[in-house]
Amino acid sequence: MGEAQRLREFGVEEGATVEVLHRAGLLGRGALACRIGRMTVAMRHAHGDAIHVRTDPAATPETAVASSSAPSSAHPSAQAITAS
């Protein structure tokens, strides 16, 4: 509820590019630091899992972005849709 709204406020929406910048934690799954638009957002994997992403073939492995099942733009930039 509130979290899906917050993700949208952070700019996670269909067609947005999401880039995983950092992963915290040596053991297990720590938090993720993602670049969304011009913003860096810290989130947990649960949030990351709720964002449907399509990997950008043009990107380096580190800038792995992913997208929804319905790519709309000609440029293979990543898209994201928040799950609500």
Binding site: A31, A42, H47
Partner: peptide, 13 residues
């Protein structure tokens, strides 16, 4: 006493 769902971390850096 404070049982519940673990709320996540979601914040702007």
């Amino acid at each position: 006493v404070a049982k519940g769902q673990s709320a996540g971390l979601l914040m702007e850096m």
